[in-house]
Amino acid sequence: MSMLHTVNKSPFNSDGLSSCLQCALAGSSVLLIEDGVYAARRGTQYEALVQEALKDKKIYALQPDLEARGVKSNLIDGIELVDYAGFVDLTTDHDSVQAWL
């Protein structure tokens, strides 16, 4: 049924996020991890893209990766934070996982 997409690259350095958001169907979920979490912040060039995606998809960000990078505040409303246990739950709650490396 629904797919979990993971994005682990900075949107500024890779088209992983934009390709992912173009393909991802309504009702699917996107989890930002590693350098992918930079897209969760408010005020970036990619905020509009993320806002648009939030209309029909769930977007999560891995909290330990946000904390490591000093960007845990000022996040886009509607993005949910998960820890590693939450990451595991997301993978089991979805039918399949696609990693946009």
Binding site: F12, D65, E67, A68, G70
Partner: peptide, 23 residues
Amino acid sequence: IGDGVYQLTKGQDTKGIGVKNFS
């Protein structure tokens, strides 16, 4: 420059990812 500016952000805390915080 580019994503390099992220190296200098305040408040980096890497305990959760198990990597040395070199900031």
